[in-house]
Nucleic acid binder design. Structure first.
Lengths: 244, 244
DNA sequence: CGCCAGATTGATACACATCAATTCTCGTGG
DNA sequence: CCACGAGAATTGATGTGTATCAATCTGGCG
């Protein structure tokens, strides 16, 4: 159980939004990967926005006046230091909330990893709605608490795991999420580049690449192109991911 | 200028949150560092419990049937791998909530770093109270969202900072928290051992010790006993903590 | 006084970063 | 249809920050 997901921070600046709508109706994920289609009280309150690959949804430091929910695509939350080091706090997919902060300004940026559609809510409107409809508040609370748990797992990974453990955890986590979203899938699709993986895992691109190659050499995974990976021996991967 | 904290970090300016002037929430993690007396709707619902130094409040994997709030002392949230590696996700002090999960089981253990008093709430009762009193829900949401932001800052620290940057951030953060709690203080009191610091910062005891000694040698900090540190040149420390 | 856990300091090892080429992929234009 | 270039990924050679192994020092306490 670990989840790549989690989020909390949002709002917007150069919202290249368009009033487009998309099919994407994938279930809301809740930390444990469950999914169900159900009338979501949020659905009526937001506006849909679309962002092209690598566009910034909002910058760290922007006024946090909007909350977001991912409809489709993958979003990354990240922060870059003055000297260019970057850390990705989370990859978010359909159903995940982000930007739900209590502070006046976002503390991380949100960027589109792939083409992304999100729902965008005015912070003030949501706050009114929560007052009117407490169950909405409970639901948000639940999502945030799951994201917090995910972040804690991520701390263990960054603070105490080796490169191959990190990769193993990452791949298993992705596999689990995709299984929850699409049902069993033999192949995991990596929406992000090796650099993104590295910045999420606290490694360098080279180490990510070498570690992936080593796993491939050992027959634990396989891939013909970098973005599409098969788990050949998930038990071996799980052994690597051990932790507890 | 960096802060493990959650307050709007980037622009260095402080969020002059409307209305109340907030005493800078600076927690190493977690939400409200304040201990001011104000009517807290939670106050009537809990029972007080006391734990001796190093006692476990709950174990990872225990059924999550209680929520907690720190009254006094310092609590650590941590997880240990099979082979003994430990990661501390947060140090919590007066006012901080913990155990507020949506899951059935705790995913991290909670332990008393010092002698600790907490308030303990039955999960179910809180959930009823939230239904009855939505403002309570908002308050919890706020605390969780701050804890999430803190966790995200901690990810940057673990994923991308060097040993001396981590120590600098840690010390500044502690200083800020203690300033907020007690007013200006020339000396910071470290409630935790070097091992605890190491497990929070993703380092070893030796590295923590060496880094502290190096800072002392340079005249940036000073300490006669390990648990009580003076910041002699906080600007130098801030330079080290850079990030952004 | 002597014990012991925590802290500090020292010597050495190693996992991962860094620097440096290739190689692969894919879009573009001739 | 294929050269061309550019960015991403991979692979290789080497460096280094921190871990690991190992004393020594310190302060509290029975």
């Amino acid at each position: 159980m670990y989840a790549i997901t989690n989020s909390a921070v949002p709002a917007a600046r150069n919202s290249t939004q368009a009033g487009v709508l998309s099919p994407a109706q994938i279930p809301l994920r809740s930390g444990s990967g469950r999914s169900t289609a159900e009338a979501d009280p949020l659905d009526r309150l937001g506006a849909v926005a679309r962002y092209a690959k690598n566009r910034t949804i909002y910058y760290e430091g922007d006024e946090a006046d909007h909350y977001f929910k991912v409809r489709s695509g993958t979003v990354r939350l990240c922060k870059v230091t003055e000297d260019g080091r970057r850390q990705i706090a989370a990859f978010l997919t359909a159903g995940d909330l982000f930007g739900w902060t209590d502070q006046a300004f976002y503390s991380f940026s949100a960027e589109a990893v792939t083409e992304v559609t999100v729902e965008k809510f005015q912070r003030q409107r949501i706050e009114e709605s929560v007052r009117a409809n407490p169950s909405l508040g409970r639901r948000i609370l639940m999502l945030l608490s799951n994201q917090l748990a995910s972040a804690h797992e991520h701390l263990l990974l960054l603070g105490r795991m080796t490169a191959s453990e990190r990769i193993a955890v990452f791949l298993l986590d992705l596999a689990r999420r995709q299984r929850a979203a699409n049902g069993a899938a033999a192949t995991i699709e990596l929406a992000m580049s090796r650099k993104d993986m590295a910045d999420y895992l606290g490694l360098t691109v080279e180490t990510v690449s070498r570690t992936m190659s080593a796993l491939k050499r050992k027959g634990i995974i396989s891939f013909a192109v970098p973005e599409s990976v098969q788990l050949k021996q998930s038990t071996a991967l799980e052994r690597l991911a051990m932790a507890a």
